[in-house]
Structure formats: C-alpha cells, structure tokens
Amino acid sequence: MKITPITGCQETLCIRVPKVYDWVTRQADFFRSFNGTNGLADLNFECNGVTGIAADPCELLNGNSNSYCNTKHGIVCNNLQVECIITDAMGNPVDPEKPSAILCQELTDPRNRESFEFTIPNGVTPDTVTLQKVKVLKKGFFIIQVTNGNGIVCTSDVQSFALVEKFFLCAPPGTHLQCEISDFQCDATLCCNPDGTFNQVDVAISMCQNIQMEAMVKLEITADFCQPRQELPFECPPLQVPPQCPEIFPGS
C-alpha cells in the first residue's frame, strides 16, 4: 500500500546516498579438471566410510559386479548422478547469489589506481575519456557429490576456485568496489575408464557479475515528508453457531 506524503510540508533536504560512478556487467567462467590418480587424490572422496584412493566413485558406485555397470561399450557414467555444490570453507552448502557467499574484492590499491585514456566514437569528433584499471578477485568453494541408484553417496573434500579479472572503469580516488554475483551455475561431469575405474571430473563454473564503483555523496533535494499509511482494520468474525437438528431435538 502506498505511503501518503504530508502535503504542504515540502522543504529542501540534505541526504547521504551512494553515487554510482560506473557500472558494467560481465560473465565470468572458471574451469578445472581433476585427472587420473592425482585428481582422485585431490578430490579425496568419502564413500560410506571409505576414504582416500580406495574411495573411487566409479568402482564403488558402478562396480564391475553391479547390475548398473556396463563396460561393454566403454565409459560407464550413465547411472551416476554428479552434482557440484557451492559451499563455505567448511563444506557447508551456501546460496552463491547471496551476499558474501562468493568473495568478490578489489586487488588494486583504491588510492593509486592506474589510469588509461580511451577514445569513444561520438560523431565527427571522438571523445577521450580517462578510466582506471581495477583488478577484481572472485573466490569460493565447492564439493563434488556422486550418487547411484542404490542411494550410496560419495562426497569430495572442499575444493576452492579463484578468478581474477581486470576492468577499466570510472574509479577516481574515494570510490570503492560494489560487486554482486547473480545467475550462478556450477556443473560437474564424471567420466570413468572402460574397466570401471576413475578417469576424471570436469568442473565448469559460470557467473554473472554486476561491477559498480560507488562513493557516498551528500545531495540537496526538494521533497515532501511522508506519513504512515492507514492500518487495515481488524474485526473479529461473528460466532458461528452449529445448526440445530429439529428432527430429533428438542423433542416434539
């Protein structure tokens, strides 16, 4: 419901708000592959109490003696579900689109950013603008979880990912980075050898990012004051009396 302004009380106000100096969006992609014995050791799966190299999800979840396994045609991944889960450093699942779930921070010194000149087409006479180089780090954690049709689960150790990118932005001294991660996707693919042992896990992470340079400023505006809306009235409903049964009570 709308908040009604108090009419007749308009005056000049001084407010403190964040001013956006520059704003860009960009997709960031990260890829990592865990290959062979070394990759299996790095993932260090735990499968129902089995750990280390022995915790091979291809062998334990498909298994040559398992009815799910079919090595006749080579790779035996078809009956395994592989999931990439974004977590904190302790392995607790988090929503990657919530603030602070993915670390996003500036690596350059905000007081001494390097400046570059760029030419922007503008009709007959191009414009020259000066922008600053801003390096931005994105960092987070994930685990790989593999399950089969029997409900057995293999969970990897916590793995980290990090990505550094540079942006050319209007970022004069006094501005700070405001970073927002959205539309986050993490996809994992497990491949097994023809003999039913681990081959590799490929992890692909994609995220959309809003990169803004902001600074707090004080603005003078002319506006109306607001007053609270009228609260909706609450009335107790009338008592509901059960219907009488005239056929049997009271007796005639």
Rank of each mutant, 00 (worst) to 15 (best):
A55N: 06
D56W: 02
D22P: 05
G52F: 13
A41H: 11
N38H: 06
V50P: 00
V20Y: 12
T25N: 10
T25Q: 15
I15R: 14
D22H: 12
P18N: 13
G49N: 02
R16E: 05
E46Q: 08
F45W: 04
L40F: 01
D22C: 07
P57V: 06
S33W: 02
N48A: 15
N48G: 14
I15H: 11
T37D: 01
N44A: 14
C9E: 12
Y21S: 07
F30W: 12
E59D: 09
L40H: 06
L13R: 15
F34Q: 09
I53V: 07
Y21K: 05
C14P: 00
T12P: 00
I53A: 12
K19E: 11
P57N: 14
A54E: 12
D56K: 07
C47A: 14
V17Q: 15
V17H: 13
R16K: 06
L43D: 01
P18E: 12
L60M: 00
S33D: 06
E46R: 10
L13T: 13
T51M: 06
V17D: 11
G52R: 03
N38W: 05
A55K: 10
P57H: 11
G49E: 07
C9S: 10
D56N: 14
Q27P: 04
V17L: 15
V24D: 08
G36V: 07
C58K: 03
Q10I: 05
A54M: 06
V50W: 09
T37K: 03
F34T: 02
F30G: 05
C9T: 14
P57S: 13
Q27V: 09
D22V: 07
G49K: 08
V50M: 06
T37I: 05
T37Q: 04
Q27C: 05
R32A: 02
F34E: 09
D22T: 04
P57R: 05
K19D: 01
Q27F: 08
V20H: 03
V50E: 03
A28N: 12
N35P: 03
V24N: 04
I53L: 15
D29G: 04
A54T: 03
L60I: 00
T51G: 07
V17I: 15
L60F: 00
C9Q: 09
N44Y: 03
D42I: 04
T37P: 02
K19S: 06
A54K: 11
L40V: 02
I53S: 11
I15E: 13
A41R: 15
L13Y: 15
P18W: 15
L43I: 07
D29E: 15
N44H: 11
E11W: 05
C58D: 03
K19V: 08
A41W: 00
E59C: 05
F34C: 06
P18F: 13
C58S: 05
A41F: 08
E11M: 08
Q10Y: 04
A41N: 10
T51S: 13
R26L: 11
E46P: 00
T51Q: 13
N44P: 00
C9K: 01
S33M: 13
R16W: 01
N38V: 01
T12E: 09
S33Q: 11
E59A: 14
G36N: 10
D22L: 04
